[in-house]
Design a protein around this nucleic acid. Structure first.
Lengths: 306, 306
DNA sequence: TGAATAGTGTCTCTCAGACATTATGCA
DNA sequence: TGCATAATGTCTGAGAGACACTATTCA
């Protein structure tokens, strides 16, 4: 980074130009810098991602991750991501404080947005299940989509087509015609692969899911998906959902309690509404550990990806 | 990312401005996008990082990570990092092919560069020890610095203070005189903490080292620090150097051979030049595993960082 | 001959996973 | 009464670490 790293180097020409660019960047093609946030949460035992319906081109009618421009000279990347998270989820400050937000990685292929070169710094958030309210202050076009409903890759509209690029971003669009109209709400996608993500957002989502799967192995962040107090069974449900594999209840229980700092007991027991019987489970809250020792390894990884 | 995510949202004004910015970004403050590469290698049993001496302000006389601007509309982030790596190390294509390069993270505090808002996407590279040639085609101002020689944090010049930026980094300290001049070469820093890194590069380096320490736990990438064939002892030296802790030779040996796909045997044995006795060690090359199962856990992590 | 190293064998302790068992509450 | 769940106990095999031992080469 940083203009003119060593202007006494060999390639003086290039270096000098970089140097100037550092001082008069408007003389060169710009790159837009944005943040995108993959907000993950659990609802009804399924992993959901926060998505926003696009009205205009490109990718009209597709879904996109919430995000926006980084405010030049005014905010850090983390701050921009936190701002987007707050704006788009509409969560109150206390709930927001329990959300885990971390940087995922950056995506900067020159053709990922047909309009111009956009470098996006992606973030992942682990959020507790929200009380059934729709996401965001204004719910229109914002939805929690089950991750299985999202197509693994974009079946249409590969980036880089001049046609797509030519059509103004969202030419007034948004809800033109029937499609996602401001008034007539169309049903949310529910079939596997039905929802198409715009740009390379399916790729970002896939990376975020893999990050989540790995992260709960060696950190206590699975608790970030739950309310402030929770039962061991609820915690196990998080692991089973994120990993997509059933776990042995007894072994899991003993394991969680044996890892120092993972959870700590509240004296209380669950009020268990709508249960199918069984003793009242004890309630725990997140402990003070930042890393789990030993870690909870996900099953199956045998053989390894060679 | 992507202009005007949903202009039917509440804050129409902001959204609309973002929209316009997507099409005429020159109308707003720009953000520069750069890549920085932390190139790590082992020389004489010590971990070194590739650094470039800064000639101009800010941070004149300090060292910086190699990096440069991403070419707008022309290259991806990975490509930009690979280009910087090639340019700055001057390695031939075959050697370069053995270097491991991965994205580390992005750094975008608005004050990290006093000149303007610069977002830098950092990469880490694991490179085999180079045949003592100086790094880069033009060696002037480019050096491999032992990581211990680099100050853990910048002792002076916190970012954001224009004045501080002007006041020399290590004004006079140590071997003064020719200091950073283009011609008179001054000796490389060798005392712990002697070399000062510009900008937030010390922070990036620290993150890169932690990444390296973790990465060799569960991937075979420690082999990227070695030549195409190597002995188990050489591999152990990599772990000991990166982790900064001695390992038990016998247990390490058995462990490495027991992990499927970590290393595979060449039929040969070492020619062992300059050894201090002992049998000829067998030579191995990297196996085809991408992940290690089970992983090599670094010692001590007991207690965990709570 | 001594010292350092390569490579293997043995033992113990920890831990993950399979399975069993008891207690509790709902239908 | 039957069933699902919470929580705990027991057993086994894998694996990490400590230690011992043999073989090989150089000084």
């Amino acid at each position: 980074m940083d203009a003119a790293r060593h202007d006494h180097s060999g390639e003086r020409g290039r270096r000098e130009r970089d140097f100037l660019a550092g001082y008069d960047p408007r003389a060169f093609d710009p790159i837009a810098v944005t943040v995108d946030v993959v907000v993950l949460t659990l609802r009804q035992g399924r992993l959901h991602v926060l998505a926003i319906e696009r009205g205009g081109q490109p990718f009209a009618g597709a879904w996109a991750l919430p995000g926006g421009f980084v405010r030049a000279g005014k905010e850090s990347l983390d701050a921009a991501a936190a701002r987007e998270l707050a704006e788009e989820t509409g969560l109150d400050a206390t709930t927001l404080g329990r959300v885990h937000l971390e940087q995922l990685g950056s995506y900067g292929h020159p053709d990922r947005d047909p309009r111009m070169h956009v470098v996006s710094i992606a973030y992942v958030a682990f959020a507790p299940g929200l009380p059934d309210a729709q996401a965001g202050g204004d719910a229109a076009g914002v939805a929690w989509l089950p991750v299985e409903v999202v197509a693994p890759v974009n079946p249409v509209l590969p980036p880089g087509q001049p046609e797509a690029a030519a059509g103004r971003p969202h030419e007034r669009g948004r809800r033109t015609g029937t499609h996602g109209g401001g008034t007539g709400r169309r049903p949310l996608p529910s079939e596997p692969g039905e929802a198409v993500l715009a740009f390379d957002h399916a790729h970002i989502l896939a990376d975020a899911l893999e990050r989540a799967r790995g992260k709960i192995e060696y950190t206590p962040l699975a608790t970030a998906f739950l309310a402030e107090t929770f039962t061991i069974s609820e915690l196990r449900a998080v692991y089973e959902t994120v990993w997509g594999a059933p776990l042995h209840a007894g072994n899991f229980h003993r394991k969680v309690l044996s890892v120092p700092g993972f959870v700590e007991s509240t004296g209380q027991t669950d009020t268990r509404p709508g249960s199918r019987g069984g003793p009242r489970a004890r309630l725990y809250r997140a402990g003070d550990a930042k890393l789990l020792h030993p870690a909870l390894l996900r099953p199956d990884r045998e053989a390894g990806i060679r």
